[in-house]
């Protein structure tokens, strides 16, 4: 399935279908991840691969045009490079342990520690969350920094010089859905449960799949639905850009602050055991707070990304609404 979609993407010249295929590709890989027991990853991939990325691509296409030029740049060079890389990869796979075998080195050494000790050391059932938010919490801090960086970059590139059309023409990026009652009503009914679901995912990450990142994306998607239904300006009145920017920074700071508090309490950076005397409770608290930091930053940045992209669409009256 994945292969078919990927090849189809390479084949098609129509960018709109390429994006749609990419979205399907994201969804298929998400289901593949479920089959591979990686539920958290599947959740995220579904949100990102089939959600945010294609959405942003569609908005971009709206601006740059959906037709790809027919010229091949350097197909032969490409083929050679690809062939070399492919051969290398295949060579590398010769000696790989068979797929799924339990005694592969990857499943020895570090991983069993997580599976066997995390119940006692962290005390939450979802091992992925334990590793993500405690054992390798610093990677996750880096991840939040990455998404924050992307937010900064997109704002610097797209917000800065000219939302002219926004300034000159109020009520610009108005949705054509505005005249349609049913989607609006359905949307209004849908938005609160989406937000509730986001909160559920946020705080349920310790027990089942989910956590700050997924929750942030879901929360942002509620706002995105709002934008689609009521237009960008209405949405921006509800959540202003400068607040989002402030909150995005706060999320990252909150995460960092947990680490610094641990430092001040005399333990290592992000050693939650410094927070409370009882280490299980301390780990819980630490994970809860940093997940909140992740959620806040991700939600704000995703909204900012979306606002920045949509806000850039030059308003032309005869254009239909965005494709998404």
């Amino acid at each position: 399935m994945l292969m078919v979609t990927a090849v189809a993407i390479a084949w098609t010249r129509h960018l709109f279908s390429a994006v749609m295929l990419a979205s399907i590709y994201g969804l298929v890989s998400a289901s593949f991840f479920v089959a591979m027991d990686a539920v958290d990853v599947a959740f995220t991939e579904a949100a990102v691969g089939a959600g945010i990325s294609p959405l942003l691509m569609l908005v971009t296409l709206r601006m740059v045009g959906a037709k790809e030029a027919t010229s091949h740049n350097h197909p032969y060079a490409a083929l050679i490079i690809v062939a070399v890389v492919g051969v290398l990869l295949l060579l590398g796979e010769q000696d790989l342990p068979a797929f799924g075998s339990a005694d592969a080195p990857a499943h020895g050494h570090v991983a069993p520690h997580y599976l066997q000790e995390s119940a006692a050391e962290i005390g939450i059932p979802n091992v992925v969350t334990s590793v993500l938010a405690s054992y390798r919490a610093f990677d996750t801090l880096g991840e939040v920094a990455v998404i924050f960086t992307a937010g900064i970059g997109v704002m610097a590139l797209l917000f800065s010089d000219t939302p002219v059309h926004l300034r000159n023409l109020p009520n610009t990026s108005r949705s054509t859905m505005e005249d349609q009652v049913i989607p609006r009503v359905v949307g209004k009914i849908l938005i609160p449960p989406i937000m509730l679901f986001a909160l559920y995912v946020q705080f349920h990450g310790e027990y089942g799949p989910g956590g700050g990142f997924q929750a942030g994306v879901i929360f942002a998607s509620a706002v995105i639905v709002y934008v689609m239904l009521f237009g960008l300006d209405a949405a921006m009145q509800v959540v202003s850009v400068s607040w989002l920017r402030f909150l995005a920074a706060c999320g990252l700071l909150l995460y960092g602050a947990v680490g610094v508090v641990c430092l001040l309490a005399g333990k290592n950076f992000l050693d939650y055991n410094a927070l409370l005397p009882d280490h299980i409770a301390a780990q819980h608290l630490g994970i809860l707070v940093i997940e909140l930091g992740v959620g806040v930053t991700v939600a704000c940045v995703v909204m900012l990304l979306f606002f920045a992209f949509v806000g850039r669409i030059p308003h032309l009256p005869d254009h239909e609404a965005r494709d998404g």
Binding site: A145, I152, A249, C250, L253, G256, G259, V260
Partner: peptide, 21 residues
């Protein structure tokens, strides 16, 4: 003993703070 981590987190956390200045 915390110098190694401070080396990195000072600029890392300085960045969001910088946004507020």
């Amino acid at each position: 003993i915390h110098l190694p981590i401070l080396q990195v987190i000072i600029p890392l956390l300085g960045a969001p703070l910088c946004l507020m200045v």
